[in-house]
Write a protein that binds this DNA or RNA. Sequence first.
DNA 1: GCGACAG
DNA 2: ATCTTGTCGC
Length: 244
Amino acid sequence: MRPFPRPRDLAEARRLQEALRARVVLAGDPTPVRWVAALDASAKKGEGLFAVAVLWDRRAEGAVAAASAHVPESELFPYVPGYLSFREAAAYLAALSRLPRPPQALLVDGQGIAHPRGLGIAAHLGVHLDLPSVGLAKRRLFGQPAGPLAEEADAAVPLCGPPGSLGAANPACPGIQVGWVWRSRARVRPVFLSPGHRVGLPETLAFARGFPRATKLPEPLRLAHLLAGRARKNRQTGPLPLEW
DNA sequence: GCGACAG
DNA sequence: ATCTTGTCGC
């Protein structure tokens, strides 16, 4: 497994993002893919970071395996908005390598191209692994909704970035569409969806809608979030029991 | 200078 | 991300 580059400072990190942004492919449809990995992490001040990968079978609509990896505090890149991949991606790669089989697509907790330089963690990981990927963030980092979002479940509006953004033209956007604001369930705050790599904008929304949802988060991400918290509490690394 | 700011 | 008490609802 190719190591994930670790920049010495933010200037170098920024140069990496600016270079890799050109490699993002905004077309493709991961909807028919069977094996998807959902990625989330849990971190606490003195405990480092625990990353979890959940292997999800889209055909059976269920999780089949999960694994965690740990990065000690001393080795962690600091959290700086816009540079999340340099903090979390290496841990995700380690967790992914512990799954019983490699995934065919990724669903990542964070932004895809809805990012100041078009390279949020989902896009960065997708390019690094050359896998289709989608970002799903609970909060906004970049872009503005094209308009008000309907209250009903499953409503979505384009997320628009300024003219130079990495994305696609959309009449609903003054500039460029970089993602979607999506109300995954009724009466919940919307989430922010954006393409990572090798996926188009309409397909990004279709891909996310294809997962079962009991809460605002699609099931594989909800599970990854739950397991990440438990992995940290129990300092658990390696394969994780699903029924945990 | 001020506000915004994934996890 | 984490922290924190109560509260509402099944």
